[in-house]
């Protein structure tokens, strides 16, 4: 059972709600993924508009947990204010904290991230920080009050999959008891299985599902891969070796010459 800030969850998939072809496909993809946590954002409302209400009614009808994000924020002040506004609207103290440091790579500004994480944790938020795979930053985030980490495995939306296996192994090995969710960069189910086989606790997906040819089928495929990787991690995998080892017993084989 996955436990995030004292909330127990059966599913190890978190799903973003952006970029789907239609609201109906979004809803079906959420169901197919089996997720119990969906991410949402806050954006400017148009005068007289009610688009926010329509979207929020759909999401609330699912009965899942909601993880608001601070996507698009580039400073501590922006991220903290967005988190406060999210708590006011969504009535949750969970926040996916993003403080972007580079427009092209969407790489987190880890210095601002740690500062914002400390401010928000002190203010009672349960912070889910979108961070890099840097071990030292991870330690600083934990010191700042985070009890969950969300390292990337590649840039957001890149679909490159895990780029630095050494860094990911190092993170997992150094903080074996901290729930860690791979957020960003996953492109296909095999990527998800790979990071789950490393012992990560969950994954957060959006683009890989939303932009797939069939988002609903892809959501289901990712869910299976995540379960497979998680079970494999606990089942004890063979270490690779350079020489062949016969699987069929050698003793008792017939000799025909």
């Amino acid at each position: 059972m996955l436990k995030l800030y004292n909330t127990e969850l059966s599913s190890r998939v978190l799903l973003g709600t952006a970029q789907y072809p239609s609201p109906a496909i979004l809803m079906d993809a959420i169901k197919a993924s089996g997720t119990e946590i969906v991410t949402v954002s806050l954006r400017r409302e148009m005068a007289g508009g009610k688009s926010g209400d329509k979207f929020w009614s759909l999401i609330r009808s699912l009965g899942t947990h909601v993880l608001p994000n601070t996507a698009g924020c580039h400073t501590v002040k922006e991220a903290v204010l967005t988190a406060q506004m999210a708590r006011d609207v969504f009535a949750t103290d969970w926040i996916k904290l993003e403080v972007i440091g580079n427009h092209d790579t969407l790489q987190p500004d880890v210095f601002a991230l740690v500062e914002a994480a400390r401010i928000l944790s002190d203010d009672g938020f349960k912070v889910f920080p979108y961070t890099t795979d840097d071990l030292i930053v991870a330690g600083r985030l934990l010191e700042a009050g985070c009890e969950v980490l969300m390292p990337w495995c590649a840039p957001i939306g890149s679909a490159l999959g895990p780029l630095n296996m050494h860094a990911l192994r190092s993170l997992r090995g150094n903080f074996p008891d901290v729930p860690m969710i791979i957020d960003a960069g996953l492109g296909r189910p095999s990527h998800a299985a790979t990071v789950m086989e490393l012992g990560f606790d969950a994954i957060l997906l959006n683009t890989a599902v939303a932009k797939a040819g069939d988002p609903v089928a892809m959501a289901g495929a990712f869910a299976k891969a995540v379960d497979a990787g998680h079970e494999a991690f606990h089942a004890g995998m063979l270490e690779p070796r350079d020489v062949a080892v016969p699987s069929t017993p050698v003793i008792g084989r017939a000799v025909f010459t």
């Binding site: 954006r43 926010g52 999401i59």
Partner: peptide, 8 residues
């Protein structure tokens, strides 16, 4: 003035 929207 902000309102809930899709997000990743």
């Amino acid at each position: 003035i902000l309102t809930p929207r899709q997000g990743g």
